[in-house]
Design a protein around this nucleic acid. Structure first.
Length: 872
RNA sequence: GCGGGUGUGGUGGAACUGGUAGACGCGCCGGACUCAAAAUCCGGUUCCGUGAGGAGUGCCGGUUCGAUUCCGGCCACCCGCACCA
C-alpha cells in the first residue's frame, strides 16, 4: 500500500537511505567516534547517558526504538556540546522466558539468550545509535555475574545481606519466591498467578535499614519526575506512631504480652479489642491447642493476599478466648485472630478502636463488639454524638479519655506517647512500609548465590578465589522445579571451611539484582574487580537515565539501594545512581478485530474505498478497537525492523520524536511515518537543489534576503538548542520544519550580496542541528554542502546563535482597548513609548473603539503590547 | 479510601518570568505542474457572521489594564498505592 513512496521520482533527486545509512554507520564505527576511556584524560566534562538496557527477547519493539532514540539525541547533542559522553549498551539477559523456551522448545536457555542478543544487536545497530559498543556485556555472562557474586559476598560480610526464615510470596506457576514489589494486586508480576504465602528460608538484602536515607534523598533529586519521587516516597511509607505493650490477663501463657503498632495512640481509651495476624506467634500458640483456631489460621493463610483484596469488606476473625489489659484504663479486651492484620507491617498486631477507624468499625459491627467514641467532632454534642456505620477520623476534642480530655487529637498523641513512656508500656516510633528485599529465586537461569551450606559450619561463603561460580550447562528441564536442585553433582561440594561434604545454595538471584549495578559495570566493563574505582568515581552518577515509568519503584529503588550498598562496601562513592531521570510514554496503535473477535495485525487490514477498515485478503469488515499500548496479545504491533527497512532509521527516529512530547504516549500512525519520510526527502532535495552556497570570509555586505535567512538560521539554532536542552524534542522538530520553510522562502529571492554565504551558513548549521535526530541524513547533507570536508558531522561542534542576529528588525505590537485586541502595529526596536502610543491610538479600529470614551490608563509593555483602559 | 497527573481547532500538539491563543506536523480545501494520476511546489484552514463584530484553552467564580498561565470550588478521564493499623 505504500510501495509507491519508495519508487524513484524520475526528475527529482532522491535520498537513498538504503545505501547511506549502512555507509555512515560503518564510518562512525571505523573512526570509533563514540568510544570513551574508562578513565579519560582528555579533560573534557563527562556526561553519562543511559537508557534502560533491554531484555533479549529476540526482536526490538517500538518501545525500544523510542527509548534508544531519545537517549541517542541526548548523547549526540551533548557530544556536540563538547562533553565526553559515555553511552553504552548491554543485555539484561537472565530471566524466566529463557527457561520457558527451554521447556517448550528444548533449546538451552544460554543458546536461546545469546542468539536473541545477536539478533537484537543487529537490529539496534541499524538504528544508527551513538553507542560505545566496546562496553557491551550481558548479565548472563560469568564475566559479569561473577563480580555480582563478589559484591554479594562483600555485602554479606558487611551485614547488608542475611539469611532469613520467613513467610514469602510464592508464585505457584513460576514456582518461585517474589519480592513484595513483584506482587501486583495479589498476583505474580510475570505469571499473573495468585500469590500464596509460604514459609521459606531465603536471602534478603536489608534495604529497610536504608529506608530513611532513601526517603530523604528524594528531596534533592530535582531532575527526577515528581511523580516517581512521590511513588517511591509512598512505597517507602514512613509513618509516625507508637509501640504499645498490652499485657495478657492470663499469666500462664508462654507469651506474656502483645506489642502493637499504632498511629493513633490518642484513641486508646476507645479500644474495644485487640487483633493479631494469622502468622502471629500467639496465633500459632492458640492453634496448637484449639483445632478451630488452627482451621481459621490455615484458612487465612491459604487465601493469600489477593482474596483479601477481592472481598475487601469481608472482615473475618476468630476469638482466642484470651484478654489483654489496656494500660491506660485497666479494662480487659478480647484478643482476636483477624484476617485483615498483616504480619509484615508493624508488629502483626493492632488494637481496635471502632469509633475512629472504618476497618475496626466493620469488624466490631460484624462481631458485635463495643464502640466508644473518644474524639468529638467540632459541631457535635458530647451527650448525643454516636458513631453509626461510619467511623470518624477527623479532628475534634478528646472525650472519655482521662488525662487527654479536652485536647485536640494531635496534642493527645504526644501526651499519650509521653504517658506510655512514663509507664514503661510503650514509646513513640517511626514505622516503614518498605520490607527487606528477598533476592532468592528457585530458578536455573540466574546468577547463582555463592554460598555453601555445611552441617557443621552453617552458611559458608564461596571463597572469592573460586568466583565466578558458573552455572552448569548440563541441566534438564523435564520436570518442574529448579534444575540446579536436580543436577546430579553440581550442588555437592566440600565445605570450604572444614572440608566435610556440604551442599551449594541452589537458589539464584532475582534478576533485579543484575540490573541494580549494571550502570556501574559499564564504566569499566573489563575490570578484574566488579568496578574500577577511578572509572566509577569519574562517570557516576548517570547524568541522564531514560526508561519506562513501569520501573518507577522496582528497578529504580533497588538501584538506589545497591549504589548505597556498594558505597558501604567500598566500591564507589556516588550517593545516587541516576542524577537525572526521564520517563518516556508508551507507543500505542489502533487495535483491530475480525468479526469473529480475533485480533488482527495492522498488516492484515487496510482502508477500503468507502473509508471503512477491511481485511486485506478477504475484504471482510474489521472492527477498529481502542488505541492502546502495543502488545503482542492485542496484535497491534508494528515491527521496527520493517519500518527501518522500508523508510530508513532516520524516518523512524524523526517520527517518534516529532509527534508529541516524549513523556506522553505516542500513537504510531502510517500517515505520521509517511510525513516523516517525506521530510527526509524534502531536506535532501533542499540541499541538492540549493542555489550556490559557498563558505569563505564573512561578506562585508548582506542584502535583505540574506539578512532574513541569517536571522532564521540563528533563531533556529537558539530555539533548537533550548528545546533539546529541555528534552522537548517535538518542539525542536517543529523549529526544524520552520527552518526548512524559511530556507525555501530565501531560495525564491534574486541573487544579492552575501546570499550565497548565508545559504552555506544555513545548511551547515542545519546539518549539525538535525544530526542528533537524523544522524545519517545529517552526514549526507554535510557531505553535499562541502564534499572535500573530511570530518564527520557526528564530530562537529554544535552551532552557537549570535544574539545580534536573532534580534528582530521590527516588532509587531498588539493594541488592545480594555484588554481586547483591536489592531497590531509594527514598531522599530527602539521606538519611543510616546510614538508607539500615538501610532496605536491612530489605528482606525482603535480610534473607533476609543470614540466618546475617556482614556484612564495607558499600559505599555515594550515590543509587546499597548492597552488603553477607558471609562464612560 | 489515600496520593498524583491531565483537560487547548477535525487531529497530535505549541505558547518565554501573566502580554496578539492555536507555532509546527497530520488531515482537509484551493491553485500550479501534468493528457491524467502520483510525487512535488504555492496558498488557505478555531467557531459563528457576507461584513463590522462576537465567542473561544473542561465547568463556575475570583485577582488583574490583561489569565491557557495565578487563586478558590466543581466535573471528566488517566496513573500509582491500598485491609499499612
Amino acid at each position: 500500500m505504500t510501495t509507491e513512496i519508495i519508487t524513484p521520482v524520475p526528475d527529482a533527486p532522491r535520498y537513498d537511505f538504503r545505501a547511506a545509512e549502512p555507509r555512515w554507520q560503518q564510518a562512525w564505527d571505523q573512526q570509533a567516534c563514540f568510544r570513551v576511556e574508562d578513565v579519560p584524560t582528555d579533560g573534557k566534562p563527562k556526561y553519562y547517558v543511559l537508557e534502560m538496557f533491554p531484555y533479549p527477547s529476540g526482536k526490538i519493539h517500538m518501545g525500544h526504538v523510542r527509548n534508544y532514540t531519545l537517549g541517542d539525541v541526548v548523547a549526540r547533542y551533548k557530544r556536540a556540546r563538547g562533553f565526553s559522553v559515555m553511552h553504552p549498551m548491554g543485555w539484561d539477559a537472565f530471566g524466566l522466558p529463557a527457561e520457558n523456551a527451554a521447556r517448550e522448545r528444548g533449546v538451552h536457555p544460554a543458546k536461546w539468550t545469546w542468539d536473541n542478543i545477536a539478533a537484537m544487536r543487529t537490529e539496534l545497530k541499524r538504528m544508527g545509535l551513538s553507542i560505545d559498543w566496546a562496553r557491551e556485556f550481558a548479565t548472563c555472562d560469568p564475566s559479569y555475574y561473577g563480580h555480582q557474586q563478589a559484591l554479594f559476598l562483600d555485602m554479606l560480610k558487611a551485614g547488608l545481606a542475611e539469611r532469613r526464615d520467613a513467610f514469602v510470596n510464592w508464585d505457584p506457576v513460576d514456582n518461585t519466591v517474589l519480592a513484595n514489589e513483584q506482587v501486583i494486586d495479589g498476583r505474580g508480576w510475570r505469571s499473573g498467578a495468585l500469590v500464596e504465602k509460604k514459609r521459606l528460608s531465603t536471602w534478603v538484602l536489608r534495604i529497610t535499614d536504608a529506608a530513611p536515607d532513601l526517603l530523604t534523598a528524594l528531596d534533592d533529586m530535582e531532575r527526577w519526575p515528581e511523580r516517581v519521587r512521590l511513588m517511591q516516597a509512598n512505597w517507602i511509607g514512613r509513618s509516625e506512631g507508637a509501640r504499645v505493650r498490652f499485657d495478657l490477663e492470663d499469666p500462664q501463657t508462654e507469651i506474656g504480652a502483645i506489642e502493637v503498632y499504632t498511629t493513633r495512640p490518642d484513641t486508646m481509651f476507645g479500644m474495644s479489642f485487640l487483633a493479631i495476624a494469622a502468622e502471629h506467634p500467639l496465633a500459632a500458640q492458640v492453634a496448637r491447642t484449639n483445632p478451630d483456631a488452627a482451621a481459621f489460621v490455615a484458612e487465612v493463610q491459604s487465601k493469600g493476599t489477593s482474596e483479601a483484596v477481592l472481598e475487601t469488606l469481608e472482615k473475618k476473625g476468630f476469638p482466642t478466648g484470651l484478654f489483654v489489659i489496656n494500660p491506660f484504663t485497666g479494662n480487659r479486651h478480647p484478643v482476636w485472630i483477624a484476617n485483615f492484620v498483616l504480619m509484615e507491617y508493624g508488629t502483626g498486631a493492632v488494637f481496635g478502636c471502632p469509633a475512629h477507624d472504618q476497618r475496626d468499625l466493620d469488624f466490631a459491627r460484624k462481631y458485635d463488639l463495643q464502640v466508644t467514641a473518644v474524639v468529638l467532632p467540632p459541631a457535635e454534642d458530647a451527650a448525643t454524638f454516636a458513631v453509626a456505620d461510619k467511623a470518624y477520623d477527623g479532628t475534634g476534642t478528646m472525650i472519655h479519655s482521662g488525662f487527654m480530655d479536652g485536647m485536640a487529637p494531635e496534642a493527645a498523641k504526644t501526651a499519650a506517647i509521653a504517658e506510655l513512656d512514663r509507664m514503661g508500656h510503650g514509646k513513640g516510633v517511626v514505622n516503614w512500609r518498605l520490607r527487606d528485599w528477598g533476592v532468592s529465586r528457585q530458578r536455573y537461569w540466574g546468577c547463582p548465590i555463592p554460598v555453601i551450606h555445611c552441617d557443621a559450619c552453617g552458611v559458608v561463603p564461596v571463597p572469592k578465589a573460586d568466583l565466578p561460580l558458573v552455572l552448569p550447562t548440563d541441566v534438564t528441564f523435564d520436570r518442574p522445579g529448579n534444575p540446579l536442585d536436580h543436577h546430579p553433582t553440581w550442588k555437592h561440594v566440600a565445605c570450604p571451611s572444614c572440608g566435610a561434604p556440604a551442599t551449594r545454595e541452589t537458589d539464584t538471584f532475582d534478576t533485579f539484582v543484575d540490573s541494580s549495578w549494571y550502570f556501574a559495570r559499564f564504566c569499566s566493563p573489563n575490570a578484574a574487580e566488579p568496578v574500577l574505582r577511578e572509572a566509577v568515581d569519574h562517570w557516576l552518577p548517570v547524568d541522564q537515565y531514560i526508561g519506562g515509568i513501569e520501573h518507577a519503584i522496582l528497578h529504580l529503588l533497588y538501584s538506589r539501594y545497591f549504589t548505597r550498598a556498594m558505597g558501604m562496601t567500598g566500591h564507589l562513592s556516588a550517593k545516587e545512581p541516576f542524577a537525572g531521570l526521564f520517563t518516556q510514554g508508551m507507543v500505542t496503535h489502533e487495535s483491530y478485530k475480525s468479526a469473529d473477535g480475533a485480533w488482527l495485525y495492522p498488516e492484515q487490514v487496510r482502508r477500503a474505498e468507502d473509508g471503512t477498515m477491511v481485511q486485506n485478503d478477504t475484504g471482510a469488515p474489521v472492527v477498529v478497537g481502542r488505541i492502546e499500548a502495543m502488545s503482542k496479545s492485542k496484535r497491534n504491533t508494528i515491527d521496527p525492523a520493517n519500518i527501518i527497512a522500508r523508510y530508513g532509521a532516520d524516518t523512524a527516529r524523526w517520527f517518534i520524536l516529532s509527534d508529541n512530547p516524549p513523556e506522553r504516549d505516542i500513537e504510531w500512525t502510517e500517515s505520521g511515518v509517511l510525513g516523516a519520510y517525506r521530510f527526509t526527502q524534502r531536506l535532501f532535495r533542499l540541499v541538492e537543489n540549493a542555489q550556490s552556497a559557498t563558505p569563505g570570509p564573512l561578506p562585508a555586505e548582506f542584502g535583505p534576503a540574506a539578512r532574513t535567512l541569517r536571522r532564521v538560521t540563528h533563531r533556529t539554532i537558539a530555539a533548537v538548542t533550548d528545546a533539546v536542552e529541555a528534552l522537548a524534542f517535538n518542539v525542536a522538530v517543529a523549529r526544524i520544519y520552520e527552518f526548512a520553510n524559511g530556507f525555501a522562502d530565501a531560495e525564491r529571492a534574486a541573487d544579492e550580496p552575501g546570499l550565497s554565504w548565508a545559504r552555506f551558513e544555513a545548511l551547515d548549521a542545519l546539518s549539525v542541528l538535525i544530526a542528533p535526530m537524523m544522524p545519517h541524513l545529517a552526514e549526507e547533507i554535510g557531505l553535499r554542502i562541502l564534499p572535500d570536508r573530511s570530518d564527520l558531522v557526528a564530530d562537529r561542534t554544535w552551532p552557537v546563535a549570535d544574539p545580534a542576529l536573532t534580534a528582530a528588525e521590527s516588532f509587531t505590537v498588539a493594541v488592545q482597548v480594555m484588554g481586547k485586541l483591536r489592531a497590531t502595529i509594527d514598531v522599530a526596536p527602539d521606538a519611543a513609548e510616546a510614538d508607539v502610543l500615538a501610532a496605536a491610538a491612530a489605528e482606525p479600529n482603535v480610534e473607533r473603539a476609543l470614540e466618546g470614551k475617556r482614556i484612564v490608563k495607558r499600559v505599555y509593555v515594550k515590543n509587546r503590547i499597548v492597552n488603553f483602559v477607558v471609562a464612560g
